[in-house]
Structure formats: structure tokens, C-alpha cells
Simulated scan of single mutants.
Amino acid sequence: MRIQMDEYTESKIKEKLGDRPGSLRLVYDTINCGCNGVVTLQIADKPWDTDVPVESEVFEVWTDRQQEQQFDPVMKLEADRNYPSFKLSSDGAVFSRNLKVTDLRKPEHSVL
């Protein structure tokens, strides 16, 4: 699987990452969503044990190996220029027009 992004989208993802390290995870989330599931983009400290890599030119991106079948071989992630959200699509489908980004990284602790 491969995910493509334009420069504007890359800049918005970089804003979300900030100065802290992190991996992106593309997830079909069914927990506490009140529906059959929603696609989310997570920022994690590292990939999870069940994750497989997703090709990306700029970022380290992962998805759960059992969820990989939910997505198409080539996906496109686009930041909305008029609203703080993302769209995930492929040539054959729109997976989300309002993709939520959730930061799961552990908070930084300062040492005094």
C-alpha cells in the first residue's frame, strides 16, 4: 500500500507532528465511534507490533496488517485548505472527507 500527499498536506502533517518524533498510523477505528467504524490518522510514538509499513515519500506511515485490506493499494491524503481536516481517497473511493488526527504520543516531561 502507498499513500500520496501534496506539499500543502505534508506541511499540515508536519505542523501536527511539531518538533517531537512520531509515526503516523492509518487506522479503521471501531472503538467508541457509535457506528461501523471511521478512518482515523493517529500519531504514535512508534509503530505497534501488528503494524505493517505504508509507502510514503516523506513520513513513516503504518497500518495494522489486519486492517490493510480495508484500504486501496494507492491512497491519497489531502489537507483541506478551508477547514482544519483531511480527506482520504483513492481512484475508486472516498474513505473520509473529515479525517480526524489523534495524537497518541506520551506527553513530554521536563527534567529539572
Rank of each mutant, 00 (worst) to 15 (best):
D49P: 10
P47Q: 01
Y83N: 13
P73N: 10
D19K: 02
T30A: 14
I13D: 07
G22Q: 01
V111H: 08
R105D: 02
K16L: 12
P53A: 07
P21T: 08
D19V: 00
P73C: 06
K87D: 01
D6M: 01
D45Q: 04
S89E: 06
Y8V: 02
V58M: 09
W62Q: 13
K46I: 04
D72P: 11
W48E: 14
S11T: 07
K76G: 02
I31E: 15
I31G: 05
E60L: 06
E15R: 10
L88I: 03
C33Y: 04
W48F: 08
D6Q: 01
D91I: 07
L24N: 11
L24V: 08
E7S: 14
L112A: 12
S89N: 05
E78F: 03
I3D: 12
G22N: 07
Y28F: 15
C33M: 10
S96F: 02
V58P: 14
L99I: 00
K106F: 02
Q4H: 07
T9Q: 03
D80Q: 05
E68Y: 09
T63C: 15
S85H: 07
G34A: 09
H109P: 00
E15K: 11
S110K: 10
A93D: 07
M5A: 06
D6E: 03
C35G: 15
D19R: 04
E55Y: 12
N98D: 11
P47C: 02
R81T: 03
G37K: 06
K76F: 12
C33N: 09
W62P: 12
M1T: 15
N98G: 06
F86W: 05
N82I: 01
M1P: 13
Y83R: 13
I31C: 10
N82Y: 03
D49N: 12
D29C: 13
R20H: 14
G92H: 12
C35Q: 11
G92P: 00
E7V: 10
Y83V: 06
K87I: 02
R25Q: 14
T30Y: 13
P53V: 02
D64H: 12
E78Q: 12
C35T: 14
Q69K: 15
P73E: 11
I3S: 10
N98F: 09
V54R: 07
D49T: 10
N82L: 05
D80W: 04
M5V: 01
E10D: 09
D64C: 10
F86Q: 05
V74C: 03
K14C: 08
W48Y: 10
V94Y: 06
K16A: 13
